[in-house]
Design a protein around this nucleic acid. Structure first.
Length: 640
RNA sequence: GCUGGCGUAGCUCAGUCGGUAGAGCAGCUGAUUCGUAAUCAGCAGGUCGUGUGUUCAAGUCACAUCGCCAGCUCCA
């Protein structure tokens, strides 16, 4: 039989082709336009390059740039083109790895002479040349010995190291395009001419294999899209996202600042404090309702305590210390030891459990200078911490409760979030069996709420495994906010006990948790999420009153006082500026409501209302506006 | 911390070949009293991040230092 039967997945189409027809021709058979869009395919569920001949009946799916795998192959091919251009221009440059990533790709290189962004135009030109040459990418396999010899001769020390680390049974494949050969598992698009639009983005350092003891290579970030328009749109989106950066908005909206005098130690302006205080008020209300008490523990405690908790040995490089009366003290990097001291200051009965002890705890941590990032990563922050002391049999229920509480809080702000389960790190307290028990308890709770999550091996705290909640910033980077950490270690170290039904002393378990994570980081995420246009209950200025002439100043003040009486945050702009100017400024300050007052409104005892994002609403009744506004502000309580 | 880039007025930025610092916005003063995203005029504002050096002369060049930005997880 010389023909094969191809069934196209995702459509009812079935077609006959001569045996050995390439996947590309099969794609064209499905639809002429596929000639333009096909990048890769799946044959019987297996990723297959377009050049590959199909030898038997198969179910086929054609992948385009719309498919994650098609996109990755396209960008990965572009990374080979970049590497080829660099080696053409700067012979002797050694190559490390060059994968596709979420928004593009990168290549780590070890150049003879450092590459700078000024070299980008030259590299770009060479890449365009390679694309015009339309070199086919040819795959071939080598034995381990051949591959080692080949790359050793070329001086590609990183490739040699990679080959050494491949498992014994691994197929070692290379791709050749023109004079350029790279060790690569593939898959790729058929030829360099497939690449339509790319751009070199930035330059960064990256340790070889992510290990800070190894050599730092130069990483060139770039991106590629299927059309020039898509690339332009992508760059446009990045520009838009930069406008939402909380560091920029924090400055423009006068929320906070960080000065050279205290790197990583933020200052909050009055408007930023309003948001902080509103968040804290919300936090207190919801936690009170969900059965938490609030405590406060000291910022500075003595060395003996931190030795007992393990921080002095396991967390020392992140702690600020001081000396008082010749004795060592530490500024708390975490709130738990203080909470433990409160627990231990009296006897507890099994009837007291679960005991939920919250604290808005200010902590200081010495983060590496290069890790600081606006309010996202600081050296002084306020954790919305809580410690739950519970009976072993209450663990799952308590964790489920915390997951639901965090979910409720995030929904209040309209956040999407991702959950991760982080397991035992290399540096840890306690034996493996206890760790496994703790990890299982967290997984049980996740299963019970039916949550989707990913496992993050080795990323737990030194005292226990954790469930992390990650939120996204304006550029799509994720930040850990909420966390739930199960701890069997500290109760042991601090000899926590309770008296059981049997009159004997028993050991409780401890859960550490935050919902916001830190107020600072949460404000940063909120700012980017809302692009500074905070919901009315959080907005630093809720109503801006704009009199058109001096004749309305009295009326403006009267309305302002009336709203203030109701606890509404209001400002009057009584400068002698034109109304357009005042509106522009109020709009840029993202005030949710503007009241414009002229002679007409004054005569009628009404207001002209302008709503952020909606524009001029015309004349409205003041009392009904006030009623609606109060209702809107009060709505956040409904979700508690 | 490491790699690369950047630090000029409160903010955003210009400053050529090394020749002695400039704009817009904001601020202040005055005029203007205006109907939905910038009224006009004037005034004031700087040890060019800091230090050392090279030079007749340094915002500009060199070195050091502090700070900021991007990245350092995505395994050929």
């Amino acid at each position: 039989m010389t023909s094969i039967n191809i069934k196209f997945e995702g459509s009812d189409k079935e077609m006959e082709f001569p045996r050995g027809t390439s996947l590309r021709e099969i794609a064209e058979g499905l639809d002429k336009s596929m000639r333009k869009f096909a990048l890769l395919g799946m044959v019987n569920g297996k990723i297959t390059e377009l050049n590959t001949p199909v030898e038997e009946d198969a179910a086929v799916r054609i992948l385009t740039f719309e498919d994650e795998k098609g996109r990755a192959a396209y960008r990965h091919t572009c990374s080979h083109i970049m590497a080829q251009a660099i080696q053409r221009l700067y012979p002797g440059t050694k190559l490390a790895i060059g994968p596709a990533i979420a928004d593009g790709f990168y290549y780590d290189v070890d150049p003879v002479k450092p590459i700078s962004t000024e070299d980008f135009p030259e590299i770009t030109k060479e890449m365009e040349k390679i694309i015009r040459e339309n070199l086919p990418l040819e795959r071939f396999e080598m034995s381990r010995e051949e591959a080692l010899k080949f790359f050793e001769e070329k001086g590609e020390i990183y490739k040699v190291e990679l080959i050494h680390d491949l498992p014994a049974d691994a197929v070692i494949s290379c791709y050749k395009q023109g004079e350029f050969v790279d060790l690569c598992a593939g898959p790729h698009v058929p030829s360099t001419g497939y690449i339509k639009a790319f751009k070199l983005m930035s330059l960064a350092g990256a340790y070889w294999r992510g290990d800070e003891r190894k050599k730092m290579l130069q990483r060139i970030y770039a991106t590629a899209f299927f059309t020039k328009q898509d690339l332009a749109d992508h760059l446009q989106r990045i520009e838009e996202a930069k406008k939402r950066d909380h560091r920029k908005l924090g400055q423009e909206l006068e929320l906070f600042t960080i000065m050279d005098e205290g790197p990583g130690f933020p200052f909050f302006y009055p408007k930023g404090m309003i948001i902080r205080n509103e968040l804290q008020a919300y936090w207190r209300e919801i936690h009170q309702k969900w059965g938490y008490d609030e405590v406060m523990t000291p910022l500075i405690l003595n060395r003996e305590l931190w030795e007992r908790s393990g921080h002095w040995f396991h967390y020392k490089e992140n702690m600020y210390t001081t000396v008082i009366d010749d004795e060592d003290y530490a500024i708390k990097p975490m709130n738990c030891p203080g909470s433990l001291l409160i627990y231990n200051s009296k006897m507890h009965s099994y009837r007291d459990f679960p005991m939920r002890m919250g604290e808005m705890g200010i902590v200081h941590r010495h983060e590496l200078s290069g890790a600081l990032h606006g309010l996202m990563r600081v050296r002084c922050f306020t954790q919305d911490d809580a410690h739950i002391y519970a009976l072993p049999e209450q663990i799952t229920e308590e964790i489920v409760g915390v997951i639901r509480l965090i979910d409720t809080i995030y929904k209040q702000f309209g956040f999407q979030y991702r959950m991760e389960l982080s397991t035992m790190p290399e540096h840890h307290l306690g034996d493996e069996e206890t760790w496994q028990k703790a990890e299982a308890a967290l997984a049980d709770a996740l299963r019970e709420v039916g949550a989707e999550y990913v496992v993050n091996p080795g990323d737990g705290a030194f005292y226990g495994p954790k469930i992390d909640f990650h939120l996204m910033d304006s550029l799509g980077r994720t930040w850990q906010c909420g966390t739930i950490q199960l701890d069997f270690q500290l109760p042991e170290r601090f000899d926590l006990t309770y008296v059981g039904e049997d009159g004997q002393k028993h050991r409780p378990v401890m859960i550490h948790r935050t919902a916001f994570g830190s107020i600072e980081r949460f404000i940063a995420i909120l700012t980017e999420h809302f692009a500074g246009a905070f919901p009315t209950w959080l907005a630093p200025v809720q109503v801006k009153i704009l009199p058109i002439t001096e004749r309305q100043h009295g009326y403006a003040k009267y309305l302002a006082n009336d709203l203030k009486e109701e606890g509404i945050r209001v400002e009057v702009d009584d400068r002698s500026e034109k109304i357009g100017y005042k509106i522009r400024e109020a709009q840029m300050q993202k005030a949710p409501y503007m009241i414009v007052l002229g002679d007409k409104e004054q005569e009628q005892g009404a207001i002209a209302l302008r709503i952020r994002g909606k524009g001029d609403q015309g004349t409205v009744n003041y009392l009904s506006f006030k009623r609606e506004l109060k209702k809107e502000i009060g709505e956040r309580r409904n979700s508690i």
